[in-house]
Design a protein around this nucleic acid. Structure first.
Lengths: 230, 230
DNA sequence: CGGGATCCGTAAAGATACTG
DNA sequence: CAGTATCTTTACGGATCCCG
């Protein structure tokens, strides 16, 4: 904690001194999701200033939550210590409570296409997809150029990539929708079939891919399973 | 929230906007423990300024976590809403992590006899105690006058009271110790028997009460059970 | 005594710009 | 890529005061 302590022996207060500062929980969410490099973390918490990010990483290192690897090709990476990994339940508790009690209109006021696409990339499940590479092209006609078009390149053998410039491959499936609909689906507040019926989302291209979208399109870790079923 | 938003749709970030401000988690711990009046809350978070406490209560009310009762004898009380009660797991997650990963010497640097005695009162279990009132007198010879002497009046029929001025009743059990030892016992980092052996704690008076102290003296909700067994 | 409000100095965070 | 530097704005701490 940079500022003075709560001066309480209670473990809740001691933990809060480390964790309950601005941006810290959101940063930990990003670290727990697997980001290790400074600029990857910046992408995950885009509105946090680099100065504060740097400061928080130092604070967390001093608290024994992260460790900087200093040698070899992973020099400059930030990795969670065992104490850091055990913060998973804390971050999950925040997420579950937020999903349950924050009015969804409030969440949907803070749309961010880059954050959404990156999270989708992270949670996508390539297992039920074709063995060779699939290219899925997301189109958000409402958005301006650099945010309008995204490509997910999914290869079950080598992983998933996300591009915002055309990689030049043939597209297998086009997903045309608006950002609010896609975000609501990701959060489990809406689902693909309903959005299709309402013409808020269109799937064109490979029929099998379109049919199975519910199985490979990952949802937020906090999404309620119920909503997708509809 | 008074400060600017993280502008993220993620439920973790939305929850953090409400919960991750200074003092908020510690205040919630106090609310979850059952305090409802402004000055009771002040006692539980003594180093929080009244202005900030008032502000936080308003913030939490706006967030739907507390509600002020406005009528009758409980006018001016702050009660948790259902959303507030469901913050229990969040506060517990902080506490468990803190108990596990904060070095105990750090916790034991922030001794506070009033906080300790109040928490002990709250968690004391009168069930295994005599049916009539028992008076337990805690003495901390190292401390100066207003903090040196405390009386717990335990009556299984009417509840437990804590006094820091002599209530005038006959004392059934004297507990003489130092604040660090008593705090360590409360936190499950030490135990009564070991402290007795080391002459850091003395019990005089009613033999049965002294023998059973492990059963009625409550420990912190985060205390490790293992430590008491020794 | 319970339940705050006010004022002011300090400390942290935001916004940009810039650098090894 | 991985951060610093600087400047402005906002939040917090602490004391004092007020009111029923």
């Amino acid at each position: 904690m940079t500022q003075g302590s709560y001066k309480q022996f209670c473990p809740v207060a001691m933990a809060a001194e480390v964790l309950s500062t601005r941006w810290t929980i959101v940063l930990l969410r990003e670290l727990l999701a697997g980001s290790t490099r400074f600029n990857d973390l910046r992408r995950g918490v885009p509105r946090m200033s680099p100065a504060l990010l740097s400061q928080r990483l130092k604070d967390l290192e001093a608290a024994g939550v992260v460790r900087r690897s200093g040698s070899g090709p992973e020099s400059g990476e930030y990795h969670l210590t065992p104490a850091g990994h055990e913060l998973g339940p804390v971050v999950m508790a925040f997420g579950h409570w937020g999903q349950r009690w924050i009015r969804s209109e409030l969440s949907l006021q803070h749309l961010d296409v880059q954050l959404l696409m990156w999270d989708m990339r992270r949670n996508l499940n390539p297992a039920p997809m074709p063995r060779q590479r699939s290219v899925i092209h997301f189109q958000y006609p409402e958005l301006k150029q650099p945010e309008r078009a995204w490509w997910l390149l999914v290869d079950p053998r080598s992983g998933t990539d996300l591009c915002s410039i055309d990689p030049g491959f043939d597209v297998d499936l086009y997903v045309t929708t608006d950002l609010k609909t896609m975000t609501a689906i990701w959060m489990g507040l809406d689902n693909v079939r309903k959005a299709q019926t309402d013409k808020r989302l269109m799937l064109t291209g490979d029929r099998a891919l379109a049919r199975d979208i519910g199985t490979w399109l990952g949802l937020s870790p906090f999404a309620k399973k119920a909503a997708l079923a509809g």
